[in-house]
Simulated scan of single mutants.
Amino acid sequence: MDVLSIAGMAAGVVAIVGGSILKGSGLGALVNPAAFVIVMVGTFAAAMLQVRLETFRHSMKMFRWIIHTPVTDPEEAIQKIINWSQVARKEGLLGLETTAEEETDAFLQKGLQLLVDGSEPEVLRSILEVDIATREEYDTKGAKVYESLGIYAPTLGIIGAVLGLIAVMGNLADPSKLGPGIATAFTATIYGIASANLFFLPVANKLKTAVATGTTYREMLVEGLVSIAQGENPRNIETKLNGYLSKG
């Protein structure tokens, strides 16, 4: 569980709500159904118009990565690859057949099966790199949906503000309607800017980071599997793969 993401979202809510209270506006100033409909519904409508249904669905599923980041343990993977290389040196590549059948990671299972089938190192690399590129593109498109929401939200906030001001101008003779109109105008702006900068854009950036991390992890796996196919010394493989470990 990513505690920092939870803390960040909570702090964003506290910043807006707490600021409203400290400024004397109170919570009521932030509650405006008309502004919410204009900004949020309009923002999602624009994003839905931009992408395909499958991409939008995938982006919604990816949101859980903010709390539960996809598990990748490079150190454990390196140790597994070293063990596989030792087996391959002793028993040959066919000695990994049982391991391939028992592997739960679909990407690794495919790579191991290619090893067992005797695929040439460069053929193995090219096949797996296609998988990596396809997966990265698919996930990046999902992350960009949130980036789009962050771009559209402030604009819809401005539209909400303009509509609120139009309502005000149309009811100058009726003071009872001036307050709600002005409230819609300012609240819509808050919804648009706050949602973009405290939620949508940070979520997009965090998802992009997760995608990049996953891509690097799979590139490391490919390098390890290719090294096994080339019959490299396990110690040399370990030294090479340790270069992928983050030192930050």
Rank of each mutant, 00 (worst) to 15 (best):
M1N: 13
M1S: 10
M1R: 12
D2G: 09
D2P: 05
V3P: 02
V3Y: 11
L4G: 11
I6S: 11
M9F: 15
I21S: 10
L22P: 02
L27Q: 09
L27N: 10
G28H: 02
N32K: 01
A34W: 07
I38C: 12
I38E: 09
V39K: 10
V41G: 06
T43S: 13
T43W: 14
F44G: 12
F44C: 14
F44R: 12
A46H: 01
A46W: 02
M48F: 13
L49D: 06
R52G: 15
T55W: 03
H58V: 11
S59Y: 03
W65R: 01
I66D: 04
I67M: 13
T69H: 14
T69E: 15
T69F: 13
P70S: 07
A77E: 13
Q79W: 09
I82W: 02
I82Y: 04
A88N: 00
K90R: 14
K90D: 01
K90L: 08
G92I: 06
L94W: 12
L96Y: 12
E97T: 05
E97H: 12
E101L: 13
E101Y: 11
E102P: 01
K110T: 07
K110C: 03
L114S: 10
L114G: 10
L114Y: 04
L114M: 10
L115Q: 01
V116E: 00
G118P: 05
G118Y: 14
G118S: 14
S119C: 06
P121A: 03
E122M: 14
V123S: 06
L124Y: 03
L124F: 07
S126N: 10
I127W: 12
A133P: 07
A133T: 11
R135E: 11
D139T: 14
G142Y: 02
V145K: 03
V145E: 01
I151C: 00
Y152W: 11
A153S: 13
A153K: 07
L156H: 03
I158D: 03
G160M: 06
L163I: 05
L163E: 01
G164D: 04
I166G: 09
M169V: 08
L172A: 12
A173F: 00
A173E: 08
S176H: 15
L178S: 04
G181E: 09
A183H: 04
I190N: 00
G192I: 06
P202S: 05
A204L: 06
A204R: 02
K206Q: 14
K208I: 00
A210W: 02
V211F: 13
A212M: 07
A212R: 07
T213D: 13
T216C: 13
Y217M: 02
G224N: 08
L225G: 03
V226R: 06
G231H: 09
I237D: 04
L241T: 01
L241A: 04
L241Q: 01
G248Q: 12
G248T: 10
